[in-house]
Structure formats: structure tokens, C-alpha cells
Nucleic acid binder design. Structure first.
Length: 325
DNA sequence: AATAAGTTCAACCGCTCGAGA
DNA sequence: ATCTCGAGCGGTTGAACTTAT
């Protein structure tokens, strides 16, 4: 016995909404409110499923919605909350006035994920890739580490080659392996820079071999030499980093038994439940009154919310715009 | 100018949750 | 305690648009 459909499929229109449909729905809701979505299309004279009407209203027609680009402050909030809550888009969106879960989800999937990846941060765990690799390698016996590197390279090979050839990024591998240096870019931010000398002189196998060597060294090197002061993702041991046009503040990275958020939480993307257990989020973004400009307010809010001193887990619950469940 | 490839985002689908009977 | 049903959530899809070749 299957589930009863929410509406008769054959008489229901799908796809893009027309301005007339929008008008019908908006004016019906303005008069009667949003009680009983199943009846709304029928009463409003729409050949739509109630679910479709609810979605159209909540994601597009609602008068309090904010359309347009996400601000830096909003992006910071999304990233920060995602690191705690995982893919709980409705909870994250509740902290962003005028944004819907669909908006936040789309923005995450199309922009922020790439942004974090580009910064060398895994968007699922919010840890640097190198840190993850070192953690995994740490749990394996030496022969397995080699297998791990091999398997990883298998996955990365095509992508690396694509980048190396299509985007003309050439990396000169020098003993003891690739070493990026931090340089000031045009925006005045520090960014990693690699030696770029060879121009497609290497054949594919040479390149892969060199990547292999570099990765193996990186894994070993990471374990041997990383101290809080020289971790590229850890700015003076405060776990914050600056990248062009985007500031990302990482929760303190923990190691086994140190009681850090990463060990306390079970943050694994969509199953993450840490936020419910651990703490609350400090947000005053809703405070729109006062004499300051929006930019100044945003700046101050962001700096207080995302300052290295502000522990994710210690945020007072009464400052929440909306309670996180 | 034509076409391919990539990106964005509105909308759909299937599932879960919770209130009420 | 169990069932039903509406609402809501998160994942996915695909049309429209943009950019690159």
C-alpha cells in the first residue's frame, strides 16, 4: 500500500510559475493566510499542488524575503553554523533574516563549498585537507599509508591533470617537496604561491610521480614539523585564517582527548548534532536600529562573532536570533 | 556567430516529524 | 498505543542563463 499522493497528479501543473499564478497565490494568502496548504490552490483557483504553493510562497513570494547577493557577514554565519549543524538548512536560515533554507542550501552548494575547497578546507568536516590526511595516515601502519596515498592519487589524478593542463598551473617540485610561500596578493591578503617555472615539459607519468612523492613527504612532514605557530590554517595558534575576500575562522582543532569541539562533537556533515548538545550561536544580526551604517554594524558583529577569542561552544543562548532547536 | 561547458537557482520528490483523532 | 494526514526538511533535478572555446 503506497502513500496517498498530496494531490491528483494529472490535474496539477508543474514547472515555472507564471506572474498570474503568483498574483493569485499572493492575493489569496493576503486575504486568508496560509492555513491548510492543501486547500489553498483549490480556493485560489490554481492548478497546483498545495506543496508547490507552499514552496512558491515560502521561497519566493513572501514579502519579508531578501533577494539578491549574500553579504560577507551572511556567508560567515552560514559557514560557521554549518560547521556546527551540518546540513540543517532550515536552522541555519532561521539565523539569517529574509533568507530561506533553499537559498542557503543553494548558496552553500554553488559558492561556499567551492570557496572552502579552494582554501584547502574540507566543506564537510571544516578541517584542512592536509590535517585530515595526516589524521588518517596517523591511524595507519606505514604500508597502508602508501596505499592511502596511491588510492588518493587515483581519485585526484584526473582532476590534477585537468588543472595542470587547462588552467596552466605548473608546479615545480623541489626537494623536499612542494613548498608554498605566503605572498601578498593584489588585495593585500596573504595567499600561498608556488614556484611556477616548468611549462608542460613533463609528461603525465612524471607529473604523477612527483605528486606522489610530494604527497608522501607532505604527510610525513605534517606529522614531524607542524607546530601551532606554523600551521598555515592556524593564525598564531588562534585557528583563524585570512584569504582573499573571505575570512574563515576554524574551530580549535583538537587532538584525541583534548576536549576540543572536534572531539566532543559528532560533526559529520548532515548527521552533525553537536550544536544541539554543545552550545549556542551568538548573533545580533537582527539588530537593525541605531546610527551606525550597515557596513560598520556588520563589521563589528562579524568581528565579535567570529573573533578567535569567541569560542563556538560558549556562545550565550539568549543572544540567538532564533533558538537552534 | 555557433556551440559546448559550466553555473545558478527554482522547483520537485520522497521522506520524516508531530499533532490530533 | 496506533493511525492518519498536513507540514516541513534536505537531496536532487533540470531549465535558464553565462562564460569559454
Amino acid at each position: 500500500m503506497g502513500r496517498i499522493p498530496c494531490c491528483e497528479k494529472e490535474s496539477v501543473k508543474k514547472g515555472q510559475w507564471t506572474p498570474e499564478e503568483d498574483h493569485k497565490l499572493s492575493s489569496y494568502i493576503a486575504q486568508h493566510g496560509t492555513r491548510n496548504w492543501r486547500l489553498i490552490p483549490k480556493n485560489a483557483g490554481l492548478q497546483r499542488c498545495g506543496k508547490s504553493c507552499r514552496l512558491r510562497w515560502t521561497n519566493y513570494l513572501r514579502p519579508d524575503l531578501k533577494h539578491g547577493q549574500f553579504s560577507d557577514a551572511e556567508e560567515q554565519i552560514i559557514v560557521r553554523l554549518h560547521s556546527v549543524l551540518g546540513n540543517r538548512w532550515s536552522v541555519i536560515a532561521a539565523q539569517l533574516p529574509g533568507r530561506t533554507d533553499n537559498d542557503v542550501k543553494n548558496h552553500w552548494n554553488t559558492k561556499l563549498k567551492k570557496k572552502l575547497s579552494g582554501m584547502g578546507i574540507d566543506p564537510v568536516t571544516h578541517k584542512p585537507y592536509s590535517h585530515l590526511m595526516a589524521e588518517i595516515a596517523n591511524t595507519l601502519a606505514p604500508p597502508q599509508v602508501a596505499n592511502l596515498a596511491e588510492a588518493t592519487l587515483g581519485c585526484l589524478k584526473d582532476e590534477m591533470l585537468h588543472l595542470l593542463t587547462k588552467k596552466h598551473i605548473d608546479i615545480q617540485f623541489q626537494s623536499p617537496g612542494p613548498t608554498p610561500t605566503m605572498v601578498n596578493n593584489s588585495n593585500g591578503h596573504m595567499s600561498p604561491s608556488y614556484n611556477m617555472t616548468s611549462k608542460h615539459e613533463e609528461n603525465e607519468d612524471d607529473t604523477i610521480e612527483k605528486i606522489k612523492i610530494g604527497l608522501s613527504r607532505a604527510i610525513i612532514h605534517d606529522q614531524e614539523t607542524m607546530t601551532p605557530s606554523n600551521k598555515p590554517w592556524d593564525n598564531n595558534g588562534t585557528s583563524s585564517g585570512n584569504f582573499p575576500g573571505f575570512q574563515y575562522v576554524l574551530p580549535s582543532f583538537g587532538h584525541e582527548g583534548d576536549g576540543s569541539p572536534w572531539n566532543q562533537s559528532m560533526c559529520t556533515g548532515s548527521t552533525c548534532t553537536a550544536g544541539e548538545q554543545q552550545g549556542q550561536f551568538h548573533s545580533k544580526m537582527g539588530d537593525e536600529n541605531g546610527d551606525e551604517s550597515e557596513g560598520e554594524k556588520d563589521q563589528r558583529h562579524v568581528s565579535s562573532m567570529f573573533s578567535p577569542d569567541c569560542d563556538l561552544w560558549d556562545l550565550p543562548s539568549n543572544d540567538l536570533m532564533n533558538p537552534l532547536v
